[in-house]
Amino acid sequence: MIKDYNLDYPDFYTRLYAFVDRNVLHVKYRARFFRLMDLFLSSTHLPVQLVASFVKRLSRLSLSAPPAALIMLMPFVYNLIKRHPSLMVMIHQDHVDNYVDPFDPKEASPLLTNAIASSLWELASFQHHYSETIATLARLFSNPFTKPPFLMEDFLDHTYTTLFETEAKRTFKKDPAMTFELKRDQLFPEGSSKDMNGLTLPDDAVSELWVFG
């Protein structure tokens, strides 16, 4: 109704904003939540500050999110930016001297967070996520915005298990790459390597931090 009849419900978006908290990306109803959120934010008449606040908060939360949630989040934000082109400043802004991030994460009202002046560093940094899929999705933001909006349904229902199965089922034609050499001494050192040699082996955190046997 909000979408079709412009019905206004007092503080609706403020409450919705409050729902987007630290657990929203981890709970199992997140797919449903995002379907609804997609619907609520689909109006192009929404103030851009409000949409920016949502985007910024989601991007903040993404920093601790599992890959499945990130897969959902990236196209969601992409669609929002496509729908509200004025959000482009959040991913592309010119150089500013003495720049300070103006976003206020504690502000409860999505209209007052000043998120529009901030940037989505969090999403950009996922161009280096350990999962290739997410890295690829994050790279969308640095490509020209020429793609049609994504169908969210394709991205909502991922879990660790589905992602894992995808990766495990992928066949490979070429033999996968190996490390150059096996550092046998560092595999499971019995004592601390410090004690043995007097110096730590720099590139292996496991043997540095742990003792075996």
Binding site: R139, N143, D154, K169
Partner: peptide
């Protein structure tokens, strides 16, 4: 670079 093909190949394709 990096169109959505690999993405489709990974997540969506199986999805």
């Amino acid at each position: 670079p990096e169109d959505d093909e690999p993405l489709l190949g990974v997540g969506l394709g199986v999805e």
